[in-house]
Design a protein around this nucleic acid. Structure first.
Lengths: 335, 335
DNA sequence: CAACCTTGAGCACACGTGTGCTCTTTCTGT
DNA sequence: ACAGAAAGAGCACACGTGTGCTCAAGGTTG
């Protein structure tokens, strides 16, 4: 029952060769208007659909991009894919998905699969891209774009978000409100990224002439963001900071929970800023001031970069700006 | 620079025909152990990767599933895709993505694209599948599985979540706590789904011998879930319900916001139950009692169904059960 | 020693599409 | 009227892989 109508079938009915049909369909070649119309009519009647596989085989490109992710369930990743898909769709490209689920073996399998499918380009998002792995990717022979990745080899193209600058904005916001004792809570299992944000935090402090206090920096070695925030607040509160800048929103939420248990009010007693602008932040109590990462825009930029590479254009790595979103969790420090 | 090594290249180096190489690689056919090993060694050295396109062309199947969604950015959809991807990956299938972004024209283009790519099966999630659309899909000639869809033609296979039963559980939970005046807030732009849940709500009331009070049902005609909840609470509160069952979590959050503004305490003054169990619910204040929809499981079930259909097994539509998650937004009614 | 079987490998075609070249027919220009 | 150009269409090969059939060489059996 499968749709097995090929240009040969059309050719037979039209009394011409399959070559003529092929040319008629793509509008190339010279032929009488009559023949062309007859062919198109028959194609329509038969419900003909070109076979993308055969076309790819002979044309040498598949009009597909492989997207490698850890998991699609992460809203952050989903946002990026969404952006990629938009641009890809507009450009006539199709997205092929591959999820590694944090399993190195599976990640290899995914990459191998994309290779077999002859994708024209690969976009890798939020992966640890070890040196061994990059090598494997290099051999691939197609453009590779990394999104929000830790490592940035000079030979790889990458789209990233300027986390350091984002962290600087967030911290400056607190400084402008009049805070001096500002704490930072990092992420123990995302070292590179956490350090970037910590540097932005320190940048802002230096600019304001405030010396960073090491006792106001905490990175409890736990594996869950919320738990990290919780523990960190318990450790930090005795130092009496007037504000906390958290690695990300979930960490900030952990802080909120701990604060509530300890009867510390936000923002009256202490201000709080997160990072990422996940959906939740708008609805927690109080709504959280945070740094928005342009996930869709990053996805779009990545796909645009991939398209550029496919057209042999010269492209350069991009750092997209983060945007501070001020909500109700920050105010001037208590007198 | 592209990896253009084919079995012919291997054949030439090994001094055999490409047929022999083909058989050596897939382990079929008879040949001396020596020849086989020589071929495999050369393939390895050349970094040979089979061309999935060519294989698909001759084998008549692509080992791919097309997944049609409205948008990937919706966490609900992302969860389903995640489930699909897991099962697909294990079975050696690859996921091809197509997002419609609510644009009918684009949706058609997406389906056409999947058809050209000769996917072996299609999974459609959370779409309105009009009659015109289903017809188009039918002509496709491949197994189609619908996930959580409004319409369920008899001829289409579908995976759904038993929303009515989920709503019944939620309402029963409130009844068991002692509530009698329980309100329902629906969704104006998801009629079918909202009615299902309302029916479950009424089922539970009838079972408990409570007559539904029409003045306790509200569905403000707004376009945003949170806004719907807000408005609904303002309308409902004068009727003095002791509990509200909301169409979904965002609606429930709207209710929470309005309640807070009006100095109505949850759960002391009124209990609240949501639906979907989105990530937020765990972190709002108070954490929301809600009905969990097994998104990953639905995705997995859909893919398993697709696999069954591909193996010509007899499959039947499934309704997965929802699970009530009791958190802190519900308690016995005030005396 | 002849008839038969087994092993090892190649030829040729298939899948569906694109394209350079060739051939015939008709039109154009002188 | 004749040479040349241009139109219209087909032949044959290509892309990379799979597979039925054939065929030669060697081995076994009666």
């Amino acid at each position: 029952m499968k749709n097995r109508v090929s240009i040969k079938d059309i050719a037979q009915l039209a009394g011409v060769s399959h070559s003529t049909v092929s040319r008629a369909l793509q509008g190339t070649g010279r032929m009488s208007e009559e023949t062309r119309e007859r062919i198109l009519t028959i194609a329509e009647e038969l419900g003909y659909t070109p076979d993308a596989l055969a076309q790819s085989l002979v044309r040498g490109r598949t009009k597909t991009v492989g997207v490698v992710v850890t998991t699609i369930a992460d809203p952050f990743v989903a946002g990026i894919i969404d952006g990629i898909e938009q641009v890809a769709g507009d450009a006539g490209y199709t997205v092929i998905l591959g999820a590694s689920h944090m399993d190195p073996e599976r990640e290899m399998a995914v990459v191998e699969n994309l290779r077999q499918r002859r994708v024209d380009a690969v976009i890798v998002t939020a992966s640890r891209v070890g040196s061994h792995y990059t090598e494997h990717l290099q051999r691939f022979g197609v453009p590779i774009v990394l999104v929000n990745n830790m490592v940035e080899g000079e030979y790889l193209y990458a789209i990233a978000c300027d986390q350091r600058e984002g962290a600087r904005c967030a911290t400056r916001h607190l400084l402008e409100l009049g805070h001096k004792r500002i704490a930072y809570v990092g992420s123990p299992f995302r070292e590179h990224s956490s350090q970037e944000r910590q540097q932005g935090y320190e940048d802002a402090l230096h600019e304001a002439g405030v010396t960073p206090d090491p006792s106001l920096i905490s990175t409890p070695p736990l594996t869950q963001d919320v738990a990290v925030g919780r523990r960190a607040f318990q450790e930090l509160w005795p130092q009496r900071p007037t504000a906390i800048f958290a690695y990300n929103d979930l960490t900030a939420i952990g802080i909120m929970l701990a604060a509530r248990e300890m009867r510390v009010r936000i923002p009256q007693d202490i201000s709080l800023v997160g990072f990422d602008d996940i959906e939740v932040t708008e609805y927690v109590t109080p709504p959280l001031t945070t740094v928005h990462q342009p996930r869709q825009a990053m996805g779009r930029a990545a796909m645009e970069m991939a398209l550029g590479l496919l057209h042999d254009e010269r492209v350069q790595n991009q750092r997209l700006a983060c945007r501070l979103v001020v909500r109700a969790s920050t105010q001037a420090p208590p007198a």
